[in-house]
Nucleic acid binder design. Sequence first.
DNA 1: TGTCGACCTTACCACCATGGCAAGGTCAAG
DNA 2: CTTGACCTTGCCATGGTGGTAAGGTCGACA
Lengths: 129, 129
Amino acid sequence: MNIGAASKASGVTAKMIRYYEGIGLLAKAPRKDNSYRDFDHRDVHDLRFIRRARKLGFSIDEIQRLLGLWRDASRPSREVKAITGTHIHALEERIAEMQAMVSALRHLSDHCHEDDRPDCPILEDLARA
Amino acid sequence: MNIGAASKASGVTAKMIRYYEGIGLLAKAPRKDNSYRDFDHRDVHDLRFIRRARKLGFSIDEIQRLLGLWRDASRPSREVKAITGTHIHALEERIAEMQAMVSALRHLSDHCHEDDRPDCPILEDLARA
DNA sequence: TGTCGACCTTACCACCATGGCAAGGTCAAG
DNA sequence: CTTGACCTTGCCATGGTGGTAAGGTCGACA
C-alpha cells in the first residue's frame, strides 16, 4: 500500500503521514525496493485513530499516549479517562476565555452606532488609560 | 523612556515590543546616542491598545487596522464595528467547534468505567472502523 | 521504445505569537 | 573599578499544517 492509498483510506494527507512517522507517532513503514513506503491495515487503523483524535482536539502528545494505551491490551481504562478529563478541562477553560472575549466585544459592539461618525466605544475601550 | 520602562508601563514584554516594531505594528522608536530605543507616551498608549486587543483575541492584522482607524480622527465607526463583527463571528465558530468536541468527549467519558479493566468506549470510538 | 502523467522521495521555507538564550555594549551606584 | 541591571541584535524553538522544488519511479498508451 503506497502512501497515496493510505492517505485516501485514512483521510490523512501524505504530508502529515510522513510527519507523524518522523516524530514517532506512527510506526516507521517498511520500504519497498523503490524506497516507497509500504503501509498495511494496521497503519491505516492508526492513522484513522489519529485523525479522529485530532478532530476531538487532542494534542499530538496526548494522542501518543492514547495510542500507547490502545495497543496495550491490558490498559486500565482509568488512564484513558484521565487523559480525556484533562483534555476536556483544557478545552473548557479555553472556551470560557473565548466566551469572555465575545461577551466583552458584543457589549462594546452593541453600543457602536455603525455610521460615519467617529464615535465608537470599541476603540475608546481599547485606548482607555 | 527605555524599553524596560515602556514595558512596565504597558504590560507588554520588551521582546514583544521589539517584535511589534519589527513587523510595523508599532512606530519605529527613535534611538538615543547609545542606540537605546526612546519611547514616548504615545508609544505606551499604542502598546496598551495592542495588549488589550490581543487579550480580546484580535489578530495582529486586525489590530493593525484597528490602530489605523484609531489614528484616523474621522474614522467611520462602521468599519470598526465590521472588524469586530467578523472577529466575534470567528470566535463563535471556534467556540462551537470546541463545544462539540467537549460534548463528544463527555459522552464517551461518561461511559468509561474508570477502573483497571481495559474496556473503554473512548478508545473504542477512536479506533472504530 | 519513447513519452507523459501520476505518483513517490527528501529537503527545505512559511505561518503566528511568543519565549529563551547567547554574546556583547552601556550605565549608574557603590 | 567592579558589579549588576539594563540594553542591543540575532538565532532557535514551539505545533501542526501547507507549500514548493528537484528528482526518482511506475504504468499506460502511441
